[in-house]
């Protein structure tokens, strides 16, 4: 449909691409902060690899936006202030108290729950993009899904193992679920441009993706003896509309530090 796009459709497409790119970008950043801190070395390798894949996905969505006339991917990633970011607020939240530069007390249960919830949400969206009216998204979605297959397998394994481990582990996981679901409200929303995004048949409506998300989640919960009661959520703050928390400013200040000093720096 790229040649026949109206101005509205184009704006809707750019909006969606930035939501997808921003989600993966900040998710990869928070994941990378765990480097060297994960519970054991095998996990360090695994979660670093997942972060790397996800950063690759972000680049691809930014490049698709670039093809539509936006600034280059590097600038989209580094130079936009928080108010212009479209990621879900769940993904920008810090990993816990402290910083990897000092004494971090990150919460692994929170990481596992957040990563699993995001991966399921992303899977549902990618499956929808396979039939998007914007063809370049069809191939990209297939490619992402191949890699996501492994991410999902990984986070599902942690989620099920920890829930079914000790009483203490279960309590920690339940508390992490509470913290994650409190911020989940905007994950499957598209913000102010939803109507245009859905009308252009770029992706299924938020209502449909939410139904599919719940189906995927229910299948996993049956393995940890949980029902949906802990997993309810509501929309309070919408990152899709640029409503963010102070945690995003902190992340942007850190990740764009070199870029702000020298935008042409060669890595």
């Amino acid at each position: 449909m790229s040649e026949h796009m109206t101005t509205n459709q184009r704006a809707a497409l750019i909006e969606l691409l930035l939501q997808l790119g921003d989600d993966d970008f900040i998710y990869a950043f928070r994941g990378a902060e765990w480097l060297g801190l994960a519970p054991h070395i095998e996990e360090d390798v695994a979660s670093a690899s997942i972060s790397q894949n996800s950063m690759g996905h972000a680049v691809m969505f930014y490049e698709l936006a670039e093809e539509l006339g936006l600034p280059e991917a590097n600038e989209l990633a580094h130079a936009r202030p928080a108010a212009e970011r479209r990621n879900s607020i769940l993904l920008e939240r810090v990993n816990g108290e402290g910083s990897y530069m000092g004494t971090p007390t990150y919460d692994w249960a929170y990481a596992v729950v957040r990563n699993l919830m995001y991966t399921i949400a992303k899977k549902v969206k990618m499956e929808s993009l396979r039939t998007s009216s914007y063809e370049p998204l069809n191939d990209v979605a297939i490619k992402v899904l191949m890699e996501l297959h492994y991410h999902l397998m990984h986070w599902k394994a942690w989620f099920i193992e920890l829930f079914n481990a000790t009483d203490e582990a279960r309590l920690k996981m339940e508390s992490a679920v509470g913290a994650v679901m409190a911020d989940f409200g905007d994950m499957l929303e598209y913000g102010e441009k939803e109507e245009e995004i859905v009308a252009a048949k770029l992706i299924h409506s938020s209502k449909t993706v939410k139904e599919r998300f719940l189906m995927e989640l229910e299948a996993i919960l049956s393995k940890v003896n949980q029902d949906m009661s802990l997993f309810t959520y509501s929309l309070k703050q919408n990152g899709r509309n640029g409503e963010h928390t102070a945690d995003l400013n902190q992340a942007l200040a850190t990740l764009a530090e070199v870029y702000q000093v020298d935008p042409a720096a060669n890595w």
Partner: peptide, 13 residues
């Protein structure tokens, strides 16, 4: 299988 993820994105251990 020790680890689905390996030293590079395309390998498992």
């Amino acid at each position: 299988l020790e680890n689905l993820f390996g030293p590079t994105a395309c390998r498992s251990i």
